[in-house]
Amino acid sequence: MLVHPKFDPVAFHIWEWPIHWYGLMYLAAFGLFLWLGNRVVSRPWNAARGWVRRDIDDLLFYGVLGVVLGGRLGYVFFYKPGDFLKNPLEILQVWHGGMSFHGGLLGVIVAMAIFAWRRGFKFLEVGDIVAPCVPTGLATGRLGNFINGELWGRPADPSLPWAMIFPQAHDGGIPRHPSQLYQFLGEGLLLFIVLWLFARKPRPMAAVSGLFLLGYGVTRFVAEYFREPDDFLGLRALGWSQGQWLSVPMIVGGALMMAWAYRRAARLAAA
């Protein structure tokens, strides 16, 4: 049976300023977005639509604001609205933790809409550029969760070779699923490979975005069966977690978006 090594959350210091691993994971995510985004816009069909590398720089700026603001507000409203209503100043105390992917996604959607409006691009076209570059950021985020020893998994059979004890859980040494690594592999690496290969050829507008929503929704829904539900929420209706219920609209919306994209492309080809 494995035991989480309880990494020091501080990677190193610059003079007296602590540099946390989780911050480095965010930095890696933004760097990967720039590198991958530049490759995406350099593809002939995207360059022909007027995309240039400077657009990726600007998208990153908008995206960072969307991730931080949306992620924090999503956590506030999706997970602890009552607690933050009692102490609204704690909303600003992001150093205490508390970010929501689904809230961050909504924040990024708003950021993309503003970018598309200001630059004259179609919103769904912007989504197709961004989508293949997102899973690597999700992967680095899950690595950050694992290093911090947070968001651990549900109890696992002790005979499972990779079952892990998380001392941070203060649960008496119960072996658990390292669900952070499951999410790293699923919504991170696997989803990246699928999207990157899919987007290597011209696709109907909104197809890549739809596949991202569908793929993330499915991988997150499955991973939630191994992830310990938030203790202040527990399981909801049907025995599903809050994360699963928030993933259902993504699965349905992604499937509908892909169907719409290909039907629209067929109508345009027949016209």
Rank of each mutant, 00 (worst) to 15 (best):
L151R: 08
R142S: 05
P155I: 02
G172Y: 02
E150H: 03
P167D: 07
Q180P: 00
I109F: 15
M164F: 04
L185T: 03
G120E: 10
G173S: 15
H170C: 13
G186D: 10
A169Q: 11
S159T: 15
P132A: 08
N145H: 04
A139D: 04
D157L: 10
I114Y: 10
R176C: 13
P161H: 03
R154N: 11
L160I: 09
Q183S: 08
F115T: 07
T136M: 15
A139R: 08
W117R: 15
W162I: 01
G120F: 06
T136I: 14
G144E: 00
G153W: 10
T136V: 09
N145M: 07
D171T: 02
I174Y: 12
M164G: 00
P135E: 11
P178D: 09
V134W: 05
S179A: 13
R118K: 15
G149K: 02
R119G: 14
A116Q: 12
A131Q: 00
L151S: 01
L143C: 04
P135S: 13
F146R: 01
A111T: 08
W152K: 00
W152N: 08
G188P: 05
C133A: 14
H177C: 07
L143P: 04
F121S: 11
G149N: 04
E125W: 12
L160R: 13
P132M: 10
R154K: 13
I109S: 12
